[in-house]
């Protein structure tokens, strides 16, 4: 199975381990990822806040890059990139006039022959649970994960339409296939304040505290995420949430691809597990004797 791969800016820096672990775990599942050549930023939230045309054009440029290189499906592991690319794709496809207008801005002829999908959607639907299960060599027995989807993986349902909008379940099924136990918890889709990570960190700290509190309440060992922005907030702001709200958090935040890689027997460092601020070392000792 050959897919276009749009890592997005974060996966080349703060979410390096997401990129590493994707590249390591996907081959076990016969997923061949081809990086979209010369991809550029999707514009993220600042793009559409300032100019709608800019936001669409930045996304369409990337979709065109994929189309030109015969990549008919593009996987975006970042929920924000996924949301931007997918909604731009949907908008220009549904409106021929908009398509030609944006093509003029980009200076290319995108025709709309690209599908944008999120990594977990492809894992669940194309790869399938049984295949994921059969790639497991070290089942994650006894580990309790809170799967965190954040806002843009399921919302709005008209764009992100692959899972239940209020109670998504795909990641839970995947970690279950790895032998772990997904916990039922309340904050699967609450927002982490992603775009305010730098400009209004105190908001992020408050939201992160709520999410961590809910995960702790559900007795989760760790939170599994599928978005670099969720990760950086939950991981980086944990100590601040601890200081400000006085709760004793030490909850490692893992990428879904790292969790898959672990179950496939990949090494701690190779999966970038040493890169988290909240170290998962103790947790993994508990779960996997071999680490």
């Amino acid at each position: 199975m050959r897919y276009g791969y749009f890592p997005g800016c974060a996966l080349h820096s703060t979410a390096k381990e997401f990129d590493l672990s994707i590249r390591l775990s996907c081959p076990h599942l016969d997923l061949e990822l081809v990086e979209v050549p010369d991809w550029s930023c999707c514009g993220a939230s600042p793009g559409h806040m300032i100019s709608e045309e800019l936001a669409l054009a930045l996304s369409v440029r990337n979709l065109y890059q994929a189309e030109r290189h015969d990549l008919t499906t593009v996987i975006a592991p970042c929920a924000a990139c996924y949301s931007r690319l997918k909604s731009a794709n949907k908008e220009v496809r549904e409106d021929a006039r908009l398509m030609s207008r944006i093509n003029r801005v980009v200076g290319e002829e995108f025709t709309g022959k690209v599908e944008v999908r999120h990594l977990i959607e492809v894992l669940y639907k194309d790869v399938g649970l049984s295949r994921i299960e059969s790639s497991v060599t070290k089942p994650l027995k006894g580990m309790k994960f809170a799967c965190y989807y954040g806002c843009l993986l399921t919302r709005p349902p008209k764009v992100a339409d692959f899972d239940d909008v209020e109670n998504p379940i795909i990641m839970d099924r995947i970690v279950e296939a790895l032998g772990a136990e997904p916990v039922s918890w309340s904050h699967k889709t609450e927002c982490c304040g992603a775009s305010f990570a730098i400009s209004r960190p105190e908001i992020v700290v408050r939201l992160v505290d709520e999410i961590l509190k809910a995960a702790q309440f559900a007795a989760a060992d760790s939170i599994v995420v599928a978005c670099p922005l969720c990760h950086v907030n939950l991981d980086m702001r944990q100590s601040q949430a601890r200081n400000k709200y006085g709760r004793n958090y030490n909850i490692p935040i893992l990428y879904i691809s790292q969790v898959i890689g672990l179950a496939q027997g990949e090494a701690y460092k190779a999966l970038g597990l040493d890169k988290h601020l909240v170290s998962p070392k103790d947790l993994l000792k508990k779960g996997l004797a071999s680490f």
């Binding site: 100019s51 709608e52 980009v106």
Partner: peptide, 13 residues
């Protein structure tokens, strides 16, 4: 191309 996109984009549709 990126420069072009920034130059040509208008805020409203």
């Amino acid at each position: 191309q990126i420069k072009g996109i920034f130059a040509k984009s208008k805020p409203f549709l």
